[in-house]
Design a protein around this nucleic acid. Structure first.
Lengths: 244, 244
DNA sequence: CAGTGGTCTAGACCACTGC
DNA sequence: CAGTGGTCTAGACCACTGA
């Protein structure tokens, strides 16, 4: 499960400890939402001072891998709404509070082609992918169409679940059902062309201008866990992001 | 110059110290690129331990207000390429290294209307704005058209400078000429319509689909220092951003 | 109340920079 | 070499949580 058990002895101790804590979280020694042992206990286990352990944990806190709550403890982050597509995609003239409903159009496990192997960084040539085509709507009005590809191996339990349910948010399901915690993503925005089926879903002409959002999502360890392409009608939405 | 000289005594000491250091940087006691006194010296001045001073400086480092260089010192950040529009806007099929040249089309100081007063958060009703209309091109091909509004008061020296020069990057000029250091921005991306003059600049029909990027830029203290609307042809560019 | 994280100290020693 | 930031320690005390 863990990818690099080797820890460089030349690195500062607090970095080595951070890496080991991260490895344990990735290995689900402490699962999402659970508490780590106290700083004092951990410091004792690693034979370092509490100050150094605090520094290691603080690094993980900055990366949003854990959350500390004064008086309670340190907890593995549940990466839910934080990463949702809807955090950035805003629809004009709609109350932002409510989530659009989801409707699954296609759900199938299939062989990965070269493009998918590249996008999902699959090593094996025979690995399969789970493909999910769904639309999101406020009432009757479709606002978003998504094409989602997942490495089938890590999401074994997902296909049968999605045959019964159509949850508005997938990331919590990844976490609870498949032990996959999403962490960071790169979004690429451009203009896109709708194919005929997607245009029909929106009920517009295929020539209608459309925003295309391509997202590559990774877990704590940097592994690609999802690749999705979303289309949204260009006239009534915008994408907002803070630059630091 | 400093906006809130009152420092809450109930806050932790390292936060109070961070705020005071920030105030001095905003007041240009230490200018962009210059070094702060050493941690030891600063700790002595504030009558705190070096550890606490380190924590205060570390907070500023995280906010990218200062940069620390091991063995050399702590320096006030020069916020240059980091914030450039070109960090996010990518043009397909173009070597990313080179900067597009800039060509100024309009440059004038005028009264602020209600919209501008809102966007730039001007307090006074009589405050003027500097308006800048420019195009960016690779060779003969225009790739970006920008409408930029600035509060005239803080950019007093800029207008005459831009009558002589047309620099490819404005943020360094803001810093060096006007003592304005940009810090963080919000970008809003949507579809835009070109007006006739802008369409003519691109050499396209006004109906051509175009990305519209609206950027609100702030300084370290959170003051709005610039509001710009950029247009870019939708067919050969994308906007890339990392989500955490 | 016991247990947790948060603040702050004082000092030793290391690693890097530039003269 | 002197001066800078980086690491690590050991401990005191504070502030918050929940039983």
């Amino acid at each position: 499960m863990s990818q690099s058990p080797v820890i460089d002895q030349r690195l500062p101790r607090h970095v080595q400890v951070r890496d080991e804590l991260m490895r344990r979280i990735a290995d689900r020694v402490w699962k999402a939402g659970e508490a780590l042992p106290s700083e004092e206990r951990l410091a004792a286990e690693f034979s370092i001072s509490v100050g150094t352990m605090r520094k290691a944990i603080q690094a993980l806190e900055q990366e949003k891998v854990v959350e500390r709550i004064h008086g309670k403890g340190t907890f593995v982050t549940r990466a839910f709404e934080r990463s949702s597509m809807l955090r950035f995609v805003r629809f004009r003239g709609t109350e932002q509070q409510e989530l659009p409903s989801a409707h699954i159009l296609t759900l199938e496990t299939k062989a990965a082609d070269d493009v998918m192997r590249g996008k999902l960084q699959l090593r094996s040539a025979t690995e399969k992918v789970l493909y999910l085509h769904r639309s999101r709507a406020y009432g009757d009005e479709v606002v978003l169409v998504e094409h989602i590809w997942l490495p089938a191996k890590r999401f074994a339990k997902l296909e049968s679940y999605l045959k019964r349910e159509s949850p508005p948010l997938l990331y919590p399901v990844y976490d609870e059902l498949c032990d996959v915690v999403v962490s960071r993503a790169v979004d690429e925005l451009s203009m896109g062309m709708l194919d005929a089926p997607d245009a029909a879903i929106f009920g517009v002409d295929p020539a209608t201008p459309c925003m295309r959002i391509e997202r590559t999502m990774r877990d704590h360890v940097g592994q690609v866990v999802e690749w999705r392409v979303s289309f949204v009608p260009a006239n009534r939405f915008y994408y907002s992001v803070e630059i630091r």
